[in-house]
Design a binder for these strands. Structure first.
Length: 399
DNA sequence: AATACGGGGGT
DNA sequence: ACCCCAGTATT
């Protein structure tokens, strides 16, 4: 069960690898982490004492056994290659990206090469990956780096985010993966891991929730091995903490995960709220005669339930008696329990009203789109499901 | 076939 | 805080 999109980063399981003996990705000299580290050190103990929080420690231990350390953009690792991979991975699975990535860097090995290439070349290299707008952003950003940053990607969060196609998460990934700087990321995988781990309900796309998640993401991000940690949490989300049926038995965080403890993995993260569908209301008229027959109307060719047999309607309960009076001689109006029917594009609040002991009007019954129906006849008619339910549950004729 | 969705940009 | 993008994976 592989996540879609970025979630599919780890499209296949980590190599079972005993003798894969990857050297730990040899990160280059960790750059001098002046300001960036200091800014973030306040969030936790990480910066100050060089200790790993429990979350990071367990995750890194897991990563050492199960994480991927041989992705093409990890060797050699450069800001340009990490950036390119992050952009490609935003929309495509790892397996697919690998081929494109290699072809891309073979043809355009440096940021300068990218900047100097024409757009057609870039798009040709991107061809097949989809989301071509991102290729254009990539290209534009490379040119901006030539202008603004001496031909390098900046090492500054804001400067990165000011480049097209780079948001906060991608900027964090670049700083963390390429430079080992302590910046958090928060992509779909990480959101899923953190909402479960902390038991955070609410749609993660909502700003208040997202804010919380960024705080957690930051608090877990260690100052040591930040690059590995970043890769690890994405891998965990992609291979273990997957959307449906997560492999909690294999999860290094299971012992402290709130969702696992409380059995909430199926409901976290909270699904995107359906866009608020408009609500309409209608009164449905159950006009019933002494013999228990109910007056039905065939609905018109337009709109919902077109062509089905249904009940006469009024805009609301107040106008229902007047409408009923045009259909039959009615004596009493008894409201029945209202209910809501949900369509794909709107909700319908239905107020059924029973007009018992109605006497048919000759002129009304005599039409092709109206008929008095007894119970047996209902079975053979096409009725909207809620209307059928309503008719099936009708009370007996009142005395 | 319909549906849901990431991460970013624009308003 | 809202929509839009333009693809893919899932149902």
């Amino acid at each position: 069960m592989v996540e879609r999109h970025a979630g599919g980063r780890l499209a296949y399981p980590a190599p079972a690898g005993r003798h894969r003996r990857h050297r730990q990705p040899r990160r280059r000299e960790r750059p001098h982490q002046g300001p960036a580290l200091r800014i973030h050190a306040g969030a936790g103990l990480n910066g100050r004492f060089h200790t790993l929080n429990v979350f990071a420690r367990e995750l890194l231990r897991w990563y050492d056994h199960h994480g991927r350390k041989d992705l093409p953009w990890q060797h050699p690792r450069s800001a340009y290659r990490v950036w390119l991979s992050e952009i490609m991975l935003q929309q495509t699975q790892v397996v697919t990206v690998m081929g494109y990535f290699q072809r891309f860097v073979d043809r355009l090995p440096t940021l300068r090469d990218l900047a100097e290439a024409d757009e057609d070349t870039v798009l040709a290299l991107w061809s097949g990956l989809g989301y071509y707008r991102r290729a254009r952003f990539l290209h534009q950003a490379a040119r901006l780096c030539m202008e603004r940053h001496d031909g390098d990607l900046p090492r500054d969060l804001d400067a990165l985010m000011n480049l097209p196609g780079i948001g906060r998460s991608t900027a964090g990934a670049i700083l963390a993966q390429a430079h080992g700087l302590r910046f958090p990321i928060l992509d779909g995988n990480v959101k899923r891991v953190l909402t479960r781990y902390h038991g955070i309900a609410g749609f993660p796309g909502e700003s208040a929730i997202e804010k919380k998640l960024w705080l957690h993401a930051d608090e877990h991000t260690p100052a040591k091995r930040t690059a590995d940690y970043t890769q690890a949490i994405m891998d965990l989300g992609a291979t273990v903490c997957v959307r449906s049926k997560p492999a909690c038995l294999l999860c290094p965080q299971a012992a402290t995960c709130v969702a696992h403890r409380d059995g909430l993995t199926a409901v976290l993260p909270t699904v995107k709220p359906g866009k608020k569908v408009p609500t309409r209301s209608v009164a449905m008229l159950l006009v019933r005669d002494k013999r228990g027959r109910v007056l039905l109307e065939r609905r018109g060719p337009q709109g919902v339930w077109s062509g089905l047999w249904s009940l006469p309607e009024a805009v609301d309960a107040d106008t229902a008696p007047a409408v009923a009076a045009t259909l039959a001689r009615v004596r009493q109006a008894d409201p029945l329990p209202a209910f809501t029917h949900v369509f794909s594009h709107y909700k319908l609040d239905v107020s059924p009203i029973l007009f018992d002991h109605a006497a048919p009007l000759a002129a009304v019954a005599d039409r092709a789109d109206r008929r008095w129906c007894n119970r047996d006849e209902l079975a053979s008619l096409g009725l909207p499901a809620p209307v059928r339910t309503l008719l099936d549950n009708l009370p007996e004729i009142s005395p």
